[in-house]
């Protein structure tokens, strides 16, 4: 018998093993749902599949007679817009600050402690301040996401850039590269794959801040909707929304991986034998 350490599943087996926990979760839900409904046909906590399907039909395929829009589409567009703007701002800031902090000792001495301090402030604690300063509109929500994810992304990228082998930086200088050219041609290209990785890890907190902000003050958005229908215990709406949010998050993650592989083949190239 081979050791468990050395046994690895084949492609088909891997697919099955990967799907098994998800299928098990769905199966357990169905069992629990039907058990509760056998006891109490008006149970709202674990709605049966038919009820969820009806809710999906109303939310995702029929226009709301009041607004004339399909709720799921309107919510998704609003949320993704906020997320996209915040991600662009956070990523650009991270790239700029991360490179400067990682490469330039003077910037590190000046801004390093500041960034380290800001990154330990719980962003949600700053939400009231943001609402007071920026009002209840889009700005406060976007700023919350930016404030929430940027400091950690900056620190991660600065660490990565700072960990570039000293040999490389010296070599570039012996080739005549100025500070600017070392940044542009040596540090920046090597920072980009890491920037994508750190963004991937920051997407989860970004969603948390987005949904928090929408839950507190908004009139459209995925987070707004689930916290709105929570008042009516509408699990048949909340569950598909949560599933939809996870699908969006997974799709973004996969897209970032694909982007990194396409744009930076050197970071994923096979090693010499």
């Amino acid at each position: 018998m081979r050791r468990l350490l050395n046994a690895s599943p084949q492609a088909g087996g891997r697919l099955f093993l990967g799907l098994a926990p998800i299928l098990a979760m769905v199966f357990i839900y169905l069992l629990a749902s039907s058990a509760r409904h056998a006891e109490n046909p008006t149970d709202r906590l674990l709605p049966p599949v038919g009820q969820i399907a009806a809710a999906v039909q109303t939310m995702a395929f029929e226009a709301d007679p009041r607004t004339g829009e399909i709720p799921l589409v309107a919510d998704t567009v609003a949320s993704l817009k906020r997320l996209a703007v915040a991600i662009v701002i956070a990523t650009a800031t991270t790239l700029l600050l991360g490179l400067m902090l990682g490469l330039l000792p003077y910037v590190r001495a000046g801004l390093g402690p500041f960034v380290a301090t800001v990154s330990v402030i719980p962003p949600i604690a700053m939400l009231p301040i943001l609402f007071i300063v920026f009002g209840l509109g889009e700005t406060a929500k976007i700023v919350l996401i930016v404030v929430g994810i940027t400091p950690i992304m900056v620190r991660d990228l600065a660490l990565h850039v700072g960990a570039l082998p000293q040999e490389q930086l010296v070599k570039a200088q012996t080739l005549g590269a100025s500070t600017w050219l070392v940044t542009l041609r040596v540090a920046l290209p090597q920072a980009l794959p890491r920037l994508i990785d750190t963004l991937r890890l920051s997407l989860c907190p970004a969603w948390v801040y987005l949904i928090s902000a929408e839950a507190i003050a908004s009139d459209v958005g995925l987070g707004y909707r689930i916290f709105l229908v929570r008042r009516y215990l509408a699990m048949d709406v909340i569950i598909p929304y949560v599933v939809w949010i996870s699908l969006l998050a997974v799709a973004m993650d996969l897209a970032l991986v694909a982007l990194s592989r396409a744009a930076f083949p050197w970071a994923h190239a096979p090693k010499a034998a």
């Binding site: 082998p165 040999e167 490389q168 010296v170 070599k171 570039a172 012996t174 040596v186 290209p189 090597q190 930076f264 050197w266 970071a267």
Partner: peptide, 12 residues
């Protein structure tokens, strides 16, 4: 200069 390691740029 040529170092023992890390003298070349991995992304080029």
């Amino acid at each position: 200069v040529v170092f023992q390691r890390y003298s070349v740029f991995p992304h080029m």
